[in-house]
């Protein structure tokens, strides 16, 4: 991987049928490549096509980070894949900032770890339990998928599963959990899910420092963006900005965003 960000290496995983593949040598090799600044000699690499745009986007978030913002929420109108790609791009950007501290702990929290772009990476990650101490309850263990020490994936559903704990304990748990990371990216679920279980998601929403909405060009409507903005604005979360998605990316099939064909044609 290179440090310039022009060709961001995000992931490499070994072919499942490769008998010589082990976790330890891969990590070592990745670390070695990163430090030697040589091109990775692996078979599968992912490279950012629009690296200029990633740099532009990443710089904006880096400024916020330098200003003390630690928790970034990325939302959209059903474009989960775009959300995940944005988070991966940003996480890689931060991971490779030499100006930041050496072992920057980046957490990615999503309810779709095994779907979309996250899937391959999470599958290549090593799962381990994270022990959290709360003042009122016993110790709580949360499963964390760590990708070679670069970033840790946490299942949001698991986190929400603790919502039945007393409010104060859950809030404390969330804070304790977030304290484990230097930087957290929230892959925000679709709005209708949050609205259905508003109380469960409330502690999570309150952890957002800034909200970014992904706008699919030619698909997302003004009123839809306004609805998300208004919803999170009700919780005091300011809209950081909009990230435009290229036209043609698939949209999640959910009842909220699905419109009858004649409406899609005429409005």
């Amino acid at each position: 991987m290179t440090s310039t960000g022009n060709a961001q290496l995000i992931n490499q995983f070994l072919a499942e049928n490769s008998p010589a593949t082990t976790e330890e040598p891969t990590v070592l090799r990745l670390e070695k490549i990163r430090k030697s600044k040589k091109p990775a000699p692996f078979t599968y690499f992912y490279k950012v096509k629009n690296h200029h745009e990633l740099f532009r986007v990443g710089q904006s978030y880096l400024n916020d980070y330098n200003n003390g913002v630690r928790s970034f929420a990325i939302s959209s109108l059903g474009y989960q894949a775009s959300q995940q790609r944005t988070i991966l791009g940003l996480a890689s950007f931060f991971d490779h900032q030499d100006s930041l501290k050496e072992n920057l702990k980046i957490g990615i929290i999503s309810d779709n770890l095994f779907l979309g772009p996250f899937k391959t990476i999470v599958q290549s990650s090593s799962a381990k339990g994270m022990m959290l101490n709360t003042s009122t309850a016993s110790k709580v263990q949360i499963l964390v998928h760590s990708f070679y020490g670069h970033f840790d994936f946490v299942d949001l559903n698991e986190l929400i599963g603790f919502a039945n704990m007393p409010d104060s304990t859950f809030d404390e748990l969330i804070k304790e959990f977030l304290g484990q990371f230097d930087l957290v990216f929230w892959d925000v679920p679709e709005l209708h899910k949050i609205q259905t279980e508003r109380s469960s998601y409330y502690p999570m929403i309150m952890c957002f420092d800034s909200l970014t909405i992904i706008v699919a060009q030619g698909q997302t409507r003004r009123e839809e963006v306004d609805r998300i903005r208004t919803f999170f604005g009700g919780y005091g979360i300011n809209l950081k900005g909009l990230i435009l998605d290229e036209p043609g990316n698939p949209r999640a099939n959910n009842p909220e965003t699905k419109r009858p064909w004649w409406k899609r044609w005429f409005n």
Partner: peptide, 18 residues
């Protein structure tokens, strides 16, 4: 034009495999 005052941060990163 639609969201006056809101920052347009950029474009979603796109990846290619090689």
């Amino acid at each position: 034009r639609s969201f006056d005052g809101v920052e347009i941060i950029g474009v979603v990163p796109d990846f290619e495999q090689f």
